[in-house]
Nucleic acid binder design. Structure first.
Length: 486
RNA sequence: GGCGCGGUAGCCAAGUGGUAAGGCAGAGGUCUGCAAAACCUUUAUUCGUGAGUUCGAUUCUCACCCGCGCCUCCA
């Protein structure tokens, strides 16, 4: 297969990712600032990164992935104060919540899940180097990056020095900066705020320095791939580049991967509009993790995603089509006569090729799903025609397993994850537990009724079962198949 | 104003210089005791608008309209 192409924000074009070698691919992702629960926009990014990473692994790459949590910042301090928490305590609460959301959505554990406060010394040391090399200066106990000392500033976001100055002047001039574009690396201590010692006095790190320092700490001065939300391009990632490259002189990141914004009902998500959703908001409404994951993964990362409740329902229906097909394969696949086997295996191979090619083309998840569904239709048709051989069924099941290893949407673990999530978060799930005893009893009675062709009783029992939350389907051979009602 | 992304059927959405993947929803049919599921057929003579290049454009160029993001700490 051709090399994996990804859009690189820095060059503004598709670029081939280096091929897999024995050397792991170094990848850094800007994670959450833990002042509150992560919202679905955050998780859109993390799911896109997750799909990318799982795809890379399936293509033979080794990964060294770093995901950071920002656990010291203005907003955390402010929210902690409002909530009556200590700052560390507040951050810990939401860091834990993030990890719960991560597990619920099946996000891959990165090789390093790192926190800013665990790397303060390294940040101080880096500030020191920036000062020593003339790229930063001390002003009233704070340290600022001297943008004028880094001519390449603005390359990532396509901004020129002049427009940056115009933008910056709008801001208040209270800070003691040489130049309006300069940004803070280290904030001097203020009463009532956490602080760490430094050569310039107590204080805390600025936002941008943490990512440069932690990325280089785990991945080296120059690494392969850096991901994050599109809104981080400027200033955050621009500043990361400046902080790193000003000292090292090396190209900080080869490939910048940005995930577009998420809208809700075509509007920017905001608390004031009442369209702001955290993961737990949706789970509490009975949304399945697999459906949420499907929706967030189904739109390619470079396109903005319009999140709607209708979209969630459509996603849930699409997931059911996939799992329904898999169930059919498992039920029927083994008992069919093996005849003309090779033709049926052919469409699985085609689907796999198209699927891989789509993902390799800038992670085109929509096209990749198209390939999967084309196989589903072909497979269902073969099953209907009684032409599904054991070999073809196995090939299709293998492909579905491979597919789900990347997309993670078939929902096999929904129930277990929801249970663990409810336990961990104390969240009450709206989905009522099934009364299995009552269901089993009615299924048995219905089977008996059907055996004696008492269809009115059978239909009555089907209605009762629906009340109990399950849909019954009569499969050929008189067998009853049931599933949880949507 | 600057930089960037996007406007494809009721909804979500792929895509190509040669005539529109896929999913959801809808309609008809097959199957079924009835259903469900599945399958088949059907639902955009048309891809924001206008002009241009071309034998031919949704795909290239230009202009315009609309939506969205960023422009100093928001994923």
């Amino acid at each position: 297969m051709a090399a994996i192409q990804l859009y690189n924000t820095l060059s503004r074009q598709l670029e081939a990712l280096r091929p897999p070698t024995g050397e792991p691919l170094g990848m850094y992702t800007c994670g959450l600032t833990v002042y509150d629960y992560g919202h679905i926009g955050n998780f859109r990014t993390f799911i896109a990164v997750d799909v990318l990473q799982r795809f890379l692994l399936s293509e033979g790459y080794q990964l060294n992935a770093v995901l950071n949590l920002t656990d010291i910042d203005d907003k955390i301090i402010e929210r902690a104060r409002t909530a009556g928490h200590g700052v560390g305590e507040h951050a810990a609460i939401y860091a834990r919540a993030f990890e719960q959301d991560m597990e619920l959505l099946g996000l891959r554990q990165p090789e390093h899940l790192v926190r800013a406060t665990a790397h303060i010394e390294a940040m101080v040391a880096w500030c020191d180097r920036l000062i020593a090399t003339g790229h930063a200066y001390i002003s009233q106990g704070s340290v600022y990056f001297r943008v004028a000392s880094f001519p390449a500033y603005g390359a990532l976001s396509g901004k020129d020095a002049e427009s940056l100055l115009v933008g910056a002047r709008v801001e208040s001039g209270l800070e003691q900066k040489e130049d309006a574009r300069d940004f803070v690396l280290w904030k001097a201590h203020k009463p009532g705020e956490p602080s760490w010692p430094s050569p310039w006095g107590p204080g805390r790190p600025g936002w941008h320095i943490e990512c440069s320092v932690m990325a280089m700490h785990y991945l080296g001065a120059s690494f392969d791939l850096h991901a994050g939300g599109a809104d981080l391009v400027f200033p955050h990632h621009e500043n990361e580049i400046a902080q790193a490259e000003a000292v090292t002189g090396e190209r900080f990141v080869r490939h910048w991967f940005h995930v577009e914004f998420l809208l809700v009902e075509s509007e920017k998500m905001s608390k004031s509009l009442g369209n702001y959703y955290t993961v737990r908001d949706l789970i509490a409404r009975g949304v399945k993790p697999s459906a949420l994951r499907y929706l967030l993964a189904s739109v390619p990362p470079r396109r903005s995603l319009n999140f709607t409740h209708e979209g969630l329902e459509q996603s849930a229906a699409a997931v059911e089509r996939l799992t329904g097909f898999r169930d059919r394969l498992r039920r029927n696949g083994e008992n069919q006569p093996p005849a003309g086997a090779d033709r049926a295996v052919e469409w699985v191979r085609t689907a796999r090729e198209n699927f891989r090619a789509a993902l390799a083309d800038n992670l085109n998840t929509a096209a990749a799903l198209g390939a999967v569904f084309e196989m589903v239709r072909a497979g269902n048709a073969a099953l209907d025609a009684g032409e599904m051989t054991a070999q073809a069924a196995r090939a299709a099941l293998d492909f579905l397993a491979y597919f789900d290893g990347i997309f993670g949407v078939l929902g096999d673990e929904d129930e277990a994850r929801l249970a663990a999530y409810a336990l961990g978060t104390g969240l009450e799930l709206s989905a009522p537990a099934l009364d299995m005893a009552a269901i089993e009893a009615r299924l048995a009675e219905r089977a008996a009724a059907r055996a004696r062709r008492d269809y009115s009783r059978s239909d009555e029992l089907r209605r009762e079962l629906e009340q109990l939350g399950v849909v019954v389907e009569d499969v050929k051979g008189g067998e009853q198949k049931w599933r949880v009602k949507k």
